[in-house]
Write a protein that binds this DNA or RNA. Structure first.
Lengths: 152, 152
DNA sequence: ATAGAAGTTAAAGTTAACTTTAAGTCAAGC
DNA sequence: GCTTGACTTAAAGTTAACTTTAACTTCTAT
């Protein structure tokens, strides 16, 4: 059982958060969560860690790396259960990220769509090939360029 | 210079395809591209490899893994420059993949949007948390569930 | 003939996000 | 007293997609 009402063992925390104990230890080494130590040097996680892990999981679903998540969580108080307000702040920012990614993918799809049937695939000319064009060319409209047969 | 009009050294191929020679060797071990060997055991890549590498790069931009790309390319003749028709077939399939990913992300965003301000973050109830719900819940409409304060 | 650029192979290194393993500690139940 | 289960740490393993390194060999130009 838990160390107390407010503190849980690593096993319990893992079970309730739906992650492996190894993941919790890993998160701890990365500074994403914290623990205190009880008798026998065993970890005791505060209840608030459960929410933190939840946030981590949501953020991961959204495609954020642990490093990015760490930055975001750094803004939250470690020893307090994140409030609705905390969550709002984070989720709004994350939605922005998501929106951006979606927009990028849509532009990529449009580019791809306009390229279907084009068949150019010219390394030097096709917009799909040039990563540096990515920001610039996305939304810059379709380009139907047939390779000249010599520069592919 | 190239071995002939139709064959290029690894260095030239790398330069023209915009990838490192190490990447080309790597792709070769993965069966994504092929080479013949001249005297001295040096690789000679057929011109068509340039297009193949192009396809690989585009596919990667679209988010496909080398393994998936390998499958797609397996349908293409190794010793022939992919034609517009080949490209059409691939790009249509890839667009489908892209569409699906975009749809997923949009559903995720909608879910996130509806969760902003909700602040539930209940491990047991919030739709954002449950990966297995992902397929089912996406598009299943928003869920405003406040945690009961005891389950997370 | 010889320097230097470009190639070759096998193996190890890199990053992310963890898991697995090894070896040992600790508390509870019988 | 002893087995069992949960826990601890450090280190190694895993997958993807390459890059880097080491130790040579071959080609090209002078």
């Amino acid at each position: 059982m838990g160390v107390s009402k407010d503190y849980l063992s690593i096993g319990e925390t893992a079970k309730r958060a739906g992650v492996a104990t190894s993941a919790l230890r890993f998160y701890e080494t990365k500074g994403l969560i914290q623990s205190t130590r009880g008798i026998g040097n065993q970890r005791a996680y505060h209840r608030s860690v459960l929410r933190r892990v939840s946030l981590i999981k949501v953020a991961q679903t959204l495609g954020l790396s642990l490093r990015e998540i760490q930055s975001a969580l750094a803004a939250l108080p470690a020893q307090r259960t994140p409030t609705a307000r905390d969550w709002q702040k984070l989720s709004k920012q994350w939605r922005g990220d998501l929106d951006r990614r979606i927009t990028e993918l849509q532009a990529l799809r449009d580019q791809l769509t306009s390229c279907i049937g084009c068949g150019c695939l010219s390394l030097k000319k096709c917009a799909l090939y040039n990563p540096q064009d990515k920001a610039a060319s996305l939304g810059a409209g379709p380009r139907f360029l047939m390779g000249d047969g010599d520069d592919d």
